[in-house]
Design a protein around this nucleic acid. Structure first.
Lengths: 235, 235
DNA sequence: AACAGCTTATAATAAATATCATAAGTTTTT
DNA sequence: AAAAACTTATGATATTTATTATAAGCTGTT
């Protein structure tokens, strides 16, 4: 059960990185070299914890590949999932500019590659290169905006609508197809949309009985998308 | 019902403004003069809409005085309140760096003074002055962080805990005393914590019967704070 | 292979919350 | 001042959701 056991260090050339333009479109080659010189890239396996709530933030990290969840522990020891993030939309940690410690944990729900930069170095360059700072701001804003809006959406829905919402979320946003393998357990879905595991299972079964989806363990196939959208929108 | 009827334009010297250091600690006097030269300051009355969901964002605005709510309309025509903001923590709009249009409405729930700057001008200066950009980023991050964490808190609580949470929120965070006038209706509290108006009223009545609070219309007095905190924390 | 621990599944029951109905008190409009 | 519209209030009932119990299906470990 050791976390670091299956971590794998990878060599990577930042100048070649496809994601470079996303995060660092306004840094010079010199700045990029400086930042990337002491960078690290790690492979995490499904289930690994990437950063832990409460730890001091020393690194600027972004997801290159895979899928992660942001979560927070409640005082009763239960977890609340805040959001899921894939490479394109996951930029470092939300708290990076507002706190010294992580306010949420990040863990891999699929095998993931994370690029780890020195936070002070990144901040240092941002405080000198305004365009770079603006880029970062846009990214952080977009990420948090998405979280706030998504939470509002979920909040106003009933059980069925919430489960429909999650299924459509994975189908549309994460996998971009109507047949996919759920990267999370029913319990995690429950932690995300704020209901009990039993009711998530029950609702999925109901959708299956109503021929809206097909279920084969973790594999989900959306059969009647229109109807699922209707349930998500109106209950 | 005209919105602009009771708006009042105010003269104000930015260099003297107490809030200057908060938002513009890293701008030069020249930049400040440039930005403030075409600024406007407006007084809004309780109930006035300051910005409307869907409108194009042309202005950078911040609250100098008063209390506002951020809200969003659902497809069914109901409102969801995202957060309340007082001068110190309300920095422009959250969407400002991630969208061209407002994603939420902002309205005054107490008489408020808002300072209105030209958004392009502010962005322009931020994209040249990295320290200023970093300041803005920190502010936006702090504001959104607070919203996300607060929403999580509320989400994991039951009715009583949620109502207790709101009362303590106003007491601790907004008014800093245990006796205050609620700036919102019971319906708005319901829109904030995601429950029905009837249940908000019922829960408040229950707290009154249990001698935890005293109610005189909108005036609330927290009598047994320890107990209210217990309810907020554990239900 | 047998065991423990976890996830998925289903049903019955209990608890939480919403809806509906009704009324008194306030505020706004006419 | 009266009427209309809204807010606060309370009770009864219906609906939604959680809890408890029980079991089968996996997964990893010894």
């Amino acid at each position: 059960m050791t976390i670091d056991m299956n971590l794998e260090s990878i060599k990577c050339d930042c100048k070649q990185c496809k994601l470079k333009s996303l995060f660092f479109s306004h840094v010079t080659i010199e700045e990029l070299t400086d930042i990337c010189d002491i960078k690290e890239e790690r492979a995490y396996s499904k289930g690994d914890i990437i950063t832990k709530e409460g730890d001091v933030i020393k690194e600027f990290l972004y997801l290159k590949e895979g899928l992660v969840k942001l979560s927070k522990s409640t005082t009763e020891g239960k977890d609340q999932i805040i959001s899921f993030s894939k490479p394109f939309d996951f930029v470092s940690l939300l708290s990076i500019f507002s706190s010294d410690v992580y306010k949420y944990s990040v863990s891999a729900i699929e095998d993931s590659h994370v690029c780890i930069l020195d936070l002070n170095l990144v901040k240092n360059h941002a405080s000198k290169n305004a365009m770079f700072a603006m880029d970062l701001m846009k990214r952080v804003s977009e990420a948090t905006d998405k979280i706030v809006l998504d939470n509002l959406e979920i909040r106003r829905k009933h059980l069925k609508g919430r489960v429909a919402h999650v299924l459509l979320y994975f189908a549309k946003y994460i996998y971009e197809k109507d047949e996919f393998e759920l990267p999370v357990s029913r319990r995690e879905i429950a932690e995300y949309i704020g209901m009990t595991t039993e009711n998530v299972i029950r609702t999925l079964s109901e959708f299956r009985k109503d021929k809206i989806i097909k279920i084969f363990g973790k594999d989900i196939q959306i059969v009647d998308k229109k109807r699922l959208e209707g349930i998500s929108e109106f209950g």
